[in-house]
Simulated assay, not measured.
Amino acid sequence: MHSTDLLKLPTRAAAALLAVGPPVALAGVTSLALHGISAADERQIHVMVPYSRRIRSRAGLVVHQGGFRDQDVIEIEGLTTFLLDRALADFLCDGDKRAAFPAVDEAMRGLPPDHAAKLRENVRDRLSERRDRRGIHRALMLLDLATGKAESPPESVLRLIVVEAGFPVPEPQYQIATIDGRKLYVFDMAWPSRQIALEYDGFAAHEERREYDLERDERMAARGWITIRAVAADLRESSRLLTELRAAFDRRCGRAA
């Protein structure tokens, strides 16, 4: 086995399952990563064992205790892991919310509306079945806020930040059309009734599109829109962003909610 294989998630997950022994299932962010959710952190392997087992966490391995049935798990790449809806429900309750919300948003991305609605329903059912009721209220809030329309995890985090700050829920991927109905621009998120838009500028995209973005902002300002731009630093410290957003709301309606 090459040393590089040891760094790969499936290799480390297989080793964890072997070390812990059955009954065990990959859980949390590890399960979500196997389902292709890039918002999940893969640095540690998360597993779940029944309450009756006394297995301790150790370096690189996080052990959770909980109940699960055979119908709660599937095999991906030969690895026993939770179904997507079960993994999402657990992570929405137990995971960092700035990772959990992008994860459920990403899971819905690209799904037909009826499939996204079914996934939401399945996750909600999983939450209602949880023996451990801690985190349920937060999980339901995050699940209701998810749309599957964010184009990246940072956009999901930005949406969460503004909602938790007390602003109305923005409309994601809001389209501006020409008089004859052709798509002109798409805002990452917007409050159309107030003509306020919020854009997330990833560093590379922003550097390549700086002049285009400035021109677009000027054109939208001529149409009566206020465009506020957020960068990665605003996700870590949001006071500058929220101050600017409140000022925009004050101009439009005198308050932020």
Rank of each mutant, 00 (worst) to 15 (best):
M1G: 11
S3A: 15
T4W: 12
L6G: 09
K8Y: 06
T11N: 14
A14C: 14
V24K: 14
L26S: 02
G28L: 04
V29R: 07
V29C: 15
A33S: 10
L34P: 03
G36P: 05
I37G: 08
I37Q: 00
I37C: 09
S38H: 10
A39V: 10
A40Y: 07
D41V: 15
E42F: 04
I45R: 05
I45P: 02
M48L: 13
R53I: 11
R54P: 07
R56N: 13
S57P: 11
R58I: 09
V63G: 05
F68S: 07
I76A: 10
L79M: 12
L79H: 10
L79S: 12
F82D: 02
L83V: 04
L83Y: 00
L84G: 00
D85K: 01
L92F: 08
L92H: 01
C93Y: 04
G95D: 03
K97N: 01
A99P: 02
A100R: 04
F101C: 14
P102L: 13
P102I: 06
A103F: 11
V104E: 03
E106F: 11
G110C: 12
G110Y: 11
A116V: 03
A117D: 04
E121P: 00
N122Y: 09
D125W: 13
L127K: 04
E129I: 03
D132E: 09
A139K: 00
L142M: 09
L143D: 00
A146G: 03
T147N: 12
T147R: 10
A150R: 02
A150W: 05
E151N: 09
S152I: 04
P154Q: 05
S156Y: 13
V157G: 12
L160V: 10
I161V: 15
G166P: 09
F167G: 01
P170L: 12
Q173V: 12
D180E: 15
D180A: 14
L184E: 11
D188T: 06
Q195N: 10
L198S: 06
F203W: 04
F203K: 01
A205I: 00
E207S: 04
E208F: 10
R209P: 03
R210S: 06
E211D: 15
L214G: 04
R216P: 02
R219K: 09
G224F: 12
G224H: 07
I228P: 02
V231Y: 03
A232S: 14
D234E: 09
E237D: 15
S238V: 00
S238R: 06
S239Y: 04
L242V: 12
E244R: 15
L245G: 05
A247W: 01
D250L: 13
R252D: 01
